[in-house]
């Protein structure tokens, strides 16, 4: 029983993404060894964000699957983001 068409991702695509992820890891380690003050946190989390987007889109097939999965995942990420934002509003202005 075939429910939906399956996209076969080539090995080379996965290897390319892996190489990108490893390079980004090295970059984030290198950048955080330099003292940039508060900018360090922003850069490290920005790179982690790019890495997780690559894993979600390619490794977890969100790019190729029914868009419903991507919407659900983005929804949860937004929810966590909103929770962090609201919690900080509370701590900053109490």
């Amino acid at each position: 029983m075939e429910n939906e068409k399956h996209h076969i991702v080539s090995y080379s695509t996965y290897l390319l993404i892996l190489a990108l992820l490893l390079v980004l890891t090295v970059v984030s380690v290198a950048v955080t060894q330099i003292n940039l003050g508060t900018l360090t946190v922003t850069i490290a989390l920005f790179i982690a964000g790019i890495k997780s987007a690559l894993v979600l889109a390619i490794f977890m097939h969100l790019k190729f699957d029914n868009k419903m999965y991507a919407f659900m995942a983005i929804g949860v990420v937004l929810l966590i983001g909103i929770m962090i934002f609201i919690t900080f509003l509370d701590y900053l202005y109490r």
């Binding site: 890891t25 984030s28 380690v29 955080t32 360090t40 946190v41 490290a44 989390l45 790179i47 982690a48 890495k51 997780s52 894993v55 979600l56 490794f59």
Partner: peptide
């Protein structure tokens, strides 16, 4: 893997 991508910078790098 995804969770580790965030744990790593938060505990080791920053």
């Amino acid at each position: 893997d995804l969770i580790w991508i965030f744990l790593f910078p938060l505990f080791y790098l920053i």
